[in-house]
Design a protein around this nucleic acid. Structure first.
Lengths: 153, 153
DNA sequence: GCGAGATAGTAAGCGCGCATACTATCTCGC
DNA sequence: GCGAGATAGTATGCGCGCTTACTATCTCGC
């Protein structure tokens, strides 16, 4: 069985489609966030942190777990955000290994503005699905849950 | 409206789900392709090229269009594949700007082995969807088609 | 206490994905 | 021919996503 039989126009498998659609979604997010000069990941961490920090000190690991991002990448992105004074990372009050990440006033303001653009972008991107959006979201949730076993629990 | 209202467990929007599921799919692909020591993108280009080259000389641009990959990235990945003797890139016979990319025997052999692992990986990843896989694929295709306007046509 | 293992974070490096800028060549109007 | 614009490809740089290796600190059994 050769490779050729798999292709009609280089876009058959659900995995390839998933990849291509996600690339386009990220491009849309990039466009929407351009006025704020932050990336999609930077926005997600900023927004998640804004939500999390209402209930006490947040470590980088806790933030990475909540946002489902890689801890190493999270560390790097937070340092980038810190260099722009959107977050600060003082020592954690009780764990000297950790840092208590917190969003600054500027970071909170930027996040609250950016979230409007991001939600509009998302709504526009998925508008074509209409009533089938909930089913699509449910399917994605199933896929994410099903493959949770890969993660360190 | 604050950011906090958007979150139940940092995973509400379809876009975020899409992103997370794609990351997990890529991780699965990475694992499946590890024995062959190539990445997902390298495999896709190799497989697409294997399919395309049966009908004449293939430029890097044509390959990038077919695989829906970025031309700059495609150029870089092809040079990586060339350094491993999986493809070669002689001058194009009629267009002196271009190269006639072709897969080597080693590249073709590797692709034909890897495609089995990739297909098994895909089948396993999406197995949980059962009968709803066609609907999911159709939805993805809709999203990709709907956002085609962003691309240079 | 105290030593072994677990955990939070950093450092360095690789490949993808994209943006900008550039060279070389092709194409088309004249 | 020949000059203007389009096109194929490369170079450079940045941020994501992950891997491996490392330090500092915490936790738990003894």
């Amino acid at each position: 069985m050769s490779l050729a039989s798999r292709h009609d126009s280089a876009d058959d498998s659900p995995g390839l489609l998933l990849w291509q659609v996600t690339n386009r979604w990220q491009a849309a997010q990039r466009t929407a966030l351009k006025p704020f000069d932050i990336t999609h990941v930077q926005f997600v961490l900023l927004a998640t942190l804004t939500y999390l920090e209402t209930s006490g000190p947040v470590t980088q690991k806790a933030l990475a777990d909540m946002a489902a991002t890689d801890p190493m990448m999270t560390s790097q992105v937070l340092r980038t955000l810190e260099s722009r004074d959107l977050v600060h990372r003082p020592p954690h009050p009780t764990d000297r290994r950790a840092r208590a990440v917190a969003v600054t006033d500027a970071g909170r303001a930027l996040a609250n503005q950016a979230v409007v653009a991001v939600e509009a972008c998302d709504a526009s991107f998925f508008a074509v699905l209409g009533d089938s959006l909930p089913a699509f979201t449910g399917t994605l949730r199933t896929l994410r849950t099903r493959t949770d076993g890969d993660r360190p629990g």
